[in-house]
């Protein structure tokens, strides 16, 4: 076999654009974030090493604890519905009934729409004079509208509702692909043994889907902890009444951008975000492995 001699730099020419983008716009800013976290850098001037001062300030900052609390609450609020509801949807659209492709496609629509479109649609639906309150009033359930967009807790719950609504179709497709790999023989054997639909769901389907459920939990938890747009759009840039709905990413954006941006402090917050996200990943990964034993 005559092999064309490959020049040593050929592969690197292929890799050059990709490596340049990933190093220049991902890894370098990441390292810079870690460095800046230990300085007093501002958008205008500054930049002296200040040791752990930003982190000391952070643990004493009530706004930080509010933000971390809201982001953590968000994870707790959206992960269980995002693990369970899309699974039920997948079971619903699994069987090949006439028109099922239409339903699968339609259920996916919220996934492709921008979060801004989705946020504005729900802002209008949940308005004090919006459709949801209107229908409830027309049914005579309410006398006064529910303050979905003005109450600090209802705002957070509404944002969670939007996240779950937008994510349903995405995780449904993941589950649907996994359902296709459940061995048919197992179902048939269980059926021969007289197991009904529920019994087969419980003893055959769910155990086979467990890794997928863990995957969905991890993906949705990491995404939920990084929530920004839903709360920003529903509660406004300031994060609801008195900033009480501000999430960690919103706080980073508020502190770090604009002419008064405090780069040092927002970098410290970013480092916390990175560590907590990675911790969430590792913890769930570990949990998964333990359960396998």
């Amino acid at each position: 076999m005559r092999i064309v001699q490959q020049r040593w730099f050929t592969p690197w020419l292929f890799l050059l654009p990709g490596l340049a983008v990933v190093i220049g716009f991902n890894l370098f800013p990441f390292l810079n974030t870690v460095v800046l976290a230990f300085t007093d850098a501002k958008v205008l001037g500054g930049g002296h090493f200040t040791g752990a001062e930003n982190f000391v300030r952070l643990v004493q900052d009530p706004a930080f604890w509010t933000a971390v609390g809201n982001s953590a609450l968000y994870v707790v609020g959206v992960v269980p519905p995002l693990v369970i509801l899309p699974l039920l949807l997948a079971l619903l659209v699994e069987r090949k009934l006439p028109g099922i492709t239409f339903f699968r496609t339609a259920f996916f629509t919220p996934v492709i729409a921008s979060i801004v479109v989705v946020g504005l649609i729900w802002t209008w639906l949940l308005d004090s004079r919006g459709l949801v309150n209107d229908v409830l009033r027309a049914l005579g359930v309410l006398t006064r509208p529910i303050p979905f967009l003005t109450d600090e807790w209802l705002l957070l719950a509404s944002a969670m509702l939007v996240t779950v609504w937008k994510g349903l179709g995405y995780y449904m497709i993941i589950y649907l692909a996994a359902l296709g790999t459940v061995p048919k023989e197992l179902h048939e054997a269980a059926q021969v043994d007289g197991a009904g639909w529920w019994r087969r769901l419980w003893s055959v389907t769910l155990p086979a889907l467990r890794p997928t459920m863990v995957l969905v939990a991890v993906l949705s938890a990491v995404a939920a902890f990084r929530v920004f747009s839903e709360v920003y759009l529903l509660a406004g840039p300031a994060g609801g009444p008195g900033g009480s709905d501000t999430t960690l990413v919103m706080l980073i954006q508020q502190v770090g951008t604009g002419l008064t941006g405090d780069l040092g402090y927002s970098s410290a917050l970013s480092v916390v975000l990175f560590v907590l996200t990675l911790g969430l990943l590792l913890a769930t990964n570990r949990l998964n492995r333990k359960e396998d034993l």
Partner: peptide, 27 residues
């Protein structure tokens, strides 16, 4: 160096965009 190049791409997947956006603005 193929392994090293691969590691660079994999490592970048671990960095959430939200944690670097302020530094990215500086870039």
């Amino acid at each position: 160096g193929r392994g090293a190049a691969m590691t660079v791409f994999l490592a970048s997947l671990l960095v959430p965009f939200e944690a670097i956006m302020v530094a990215l603005f500086l870039v």
